[in-house]
Design a binder for these strands. Structure first.
Lengths: 210, 210
DNA sequence: TCGGATCAGTACCGATCGGTACAGAAATCG
DNA sequence: CGATTTCTGTACCGATCGGTACTGATCCGA
């Protein structure tokens, strides 16, 4: 169905992708509208017309990131045991924060942790996004307890928090240039901690990395 | 010994302290010179005269933070065993990132992880500062291996990296408002992971938190 | 008491910020 | 083919950025 008026001269989906990478690499405050429009291949008025503005663009970008780049988390949640959920999550996280075709680290952290008072809503929004992921993981552990996969005295919230803490540290390290292999080793140590602390049932082939 | 010329009308040490908190709360890019001078109680030309400029001020502030707020790390390193080093480090880190009289989190992370290309040296400087701390911890573990406190096949660098990853995650969580008690639980899980992965000799009173 | 040294405060600098106005271009509809 | 709609590009907006010039204030030394 043809739409009236001049057609856009750019692919909004592709432009959003380029914007995502700028925010990921430079953070919300470090990315200027000039940086964004240069990467997106459009002019400022087009950014405003198509995406609403800098902050709205950022929120769209974070939604896209959650939907696409965090797909591995949903895959991990589907594993049959808590141990395998965490093993998959941590290992895939290490891959995700060190992709050669993506900025290093994690947008939901580098997007903004400390901001000016004007931009505090942006940092708050990212923190809420991370917390949502943590709650989803805690919920998965609640189910593991209900299924007898984790012992009754396991603390789903604390375990989920620990796993998220490790993924955040992965992102900080990756953004600082630490290699995938170095992070992989740390992930295995974290998995050992999860196993020890949670009383999780281990798969038969699980090994102690140390 | 009296100095010639008009005496400064402010305490440079106290002003540096105030600047430290602004950078810690808002990050290097989120903190404007106006924010800084307002908190320091001085005018712009005084900031330039006394501290050199925004970036020089930041570097001074980070040095001060490493010397004073990271004192607990040096205390932890002096513990007799690797296990106690890590136990002290993680527990004190939880206290440090949730102090009621300080911003939440850690300046060496919130100061800047992702920046504009102009400010990349600032993020690099912080990353180097964190890496220095990690190397110091790895060196302590090398000594633990040499003393027989850690087994010969323990990997000091990987273990140090894991511990630093956890402290970074602590800072991100704390900055997002997570409570000291919640972080304490996660720290104990991390400690369990360290114990499991490192083959460290445990103190007699060590307990499994789960 | 005056000169010299150093500091504080006000005004100002050029550059860039996030954002918008407006004219012209490119499309569809009747 | 003209009207309408939608988009692009250029120029521009007020505000704030990091930083400096300059004048007057406040000290010490001779």
């Amino acid at each position: 169905m043809p739409q009236r008026g001049r057609p856009r001269g750019f692919d909004a989906d592709e432009a959003l992708e380029r914007a995502l990478e700028v925010f990921w690499r430079q953070g919300y405050e470090g990315a200027s509208v000039t940086d964004l429009t240069a990467a997106m291949g459009i002019n400022k008025p087009s950014l405003y017309a198509a995406f609403g503005g800098k902050e709205e663009l950022f929120r769209k970008v974070v939604a896209r990131y959650a939907e696409q780049d965090m797909e591995y988390a949903r895959t991990a949640f589907a594993q049959p045991t808590a141990y395998e959920v965490v093993a998959t999550l941590l290992r895939e996280n290490v891959l995700a924060v060190t992709r050669p075709d993506r900025p290093a680290g994690c947008l939901s952290i580098q997007g903004g942790t400390a901001c000016s008072t004007e931009n505090a809503p942006v940092a708050g929004f990212l923190a809420a996004s991370r917390l949502a992921g943590e709650r989803a993981l805690a919920d998965r552990f609640v189910r593991a307890v209900a299924e007898g996969d984790l012992p009754a005295d396991a603390d789903p919230a604390a375990l989920a928090r620990f796993v998220m803490i490790v993924t955040e540290g992965h992102a900080i390290h990756a953004a600082a240039g630490v290699s995938r292999e170095d992070l992989r080793q740390a992930a295995e140590i974290a998995l050992a901690g999860f196993a020890a602390a949670s009383g999780a049932r281990l798969p038969e082939h699980a090994t102690n990395p140390a």
